[in-house]
Design a protein around this nucleic acid. Structure first.
Lengths: 191, 191
DNA sequence: AAAACATATATCAAATCGATATATGGCTAA
DNA sequence: TTAGCCATATATCGATTTGATATATGTTTT
């Protein structure tokens, strides 16, 4: 599934500018299972405009740059329906945090503690955001369903991190740290 | 975090060929939070070879093509440690399935039922795979931790799909009844 | 008054993907 | 039996996508 289909799908819910599509993709319910950058959204909209899948309306705004508000056309809906019929790709979950945890022996203890706590707070924020989304979009049942899924998955992940804090950050830590003897006649090689 | 760091991190656990790294990235515990294709892995290994971050050993195999087994060097470990110190990027979860569910009104009912069932089976498979991984790598505690996280998250997602089957596939799609899971995090809000 | 930030569009080098090419051998169904 | 497919293995390349940056303007914060 490419950025074209992504934009068409979003324009199904409401007409929007490229900027607004990007915001929805990173903040709204969408943000939890799709992603795209300006560098792909703007060219996609321009191209789809030329192909008649969307149309534009320039909107003047007081105190802000003009907005190009895009709306999906019947032809666009046709292409969307065709694109959606393709079997969905496997889910993809990327977490640099988990990669770092897996390689924690290469990181200072305090740093691991810091990123662990940040991750917990990040997950709490995300879950809170989803709950706000559900309130806003409670009219659309599919959105509530999707939001519920995100809440369930992230909630379980958060709980796991909270419950297993000690497993990673446990008090007396392992043999990882090499303690150098206090020898005043010798300069320390390692900081 | 780029493919270089990814490869270095994996080579930390055992020396491997590009082909094996790709397999680990899509099948092993790794597969649940990182990803990379041949098109990025092979060039990364070649370049890191030239920079002295890894070294190669050609391995002849009976009945199979020769294997280039890469191993991380002390210099490679140094670069890895530096790269890991950078704050991890936000988690990224992509699910074309969820996108399709959100736009289910554009899809035939039977097709929605089909992809829904496929998703459930896919999640069951993934969870099963993780459990196998844990058995294999039970020696490495960080791996067990990471695998446990994946199991918790995916498990909650699977349960959600199983519990809310009727909400999406039930006789009348317009009357969605979403079963919210018992959520311990929600309680904290009022506490 | 300066700095930072939000809105808004746009571009582009660099990174990455996804598909394909090449080669070898084992397995298996017509 | 042999043609077709699958697994191992490396490599390349066009197309897509990212991530950073440029430009313009107004508001809010320091």
């Amino acid at each position: 599934m490419n950025v074209r289909t992504l934009c068409l799908g979003i324009l199904t819910f409401k007409e929007a500018s490229g900027y607004e599509i990007k915001k929805m993709v990173e903040e709204d319910v969408f943000g939890h299972f799709i992603d795209a950058s300006y560098g792909s959204i703007y060219p996609a909209l321009t191209k789809m405009m030329a192909e008649g899948l969307v149309n534009v309306r320039a909107e003047e705004q007081a105190g802000k740059p003009d907005k190009k508000v895009y709306a999906i056309t019947p032809l666009g809906r046709q292409e969307l329906a065709a694109a959606l019929l393709v079997d969905p790709a496997k889910d993809k979950f990327k977490s640099e945090f988990m990669f770092q945890i897996m390689l924690q022996e290469y990181l200072p203890k305090e740093h691991v503690a810091q990123i662990y706590q940040s991750q917990i707070e990040y997950l709490r924020d995300e879950i809170e955001k989803i709950r706000c989304c559900v309130d806003h979009h409670s009219t659309h049942p599919s959105m509530s369903f999707v939001a519920g899924f995100g809440e369930a998955s992230l909630g379980a992940g958060l709980k796991y991190l909270e419950d297993n804090k000690d497993a990673i950050l446990g008090g007396d830590n392992r043999d990882l740290k090499i303690v150098q003897p206090m020898d005043q006649n010798r300069k320390q090689k390692n900081a």
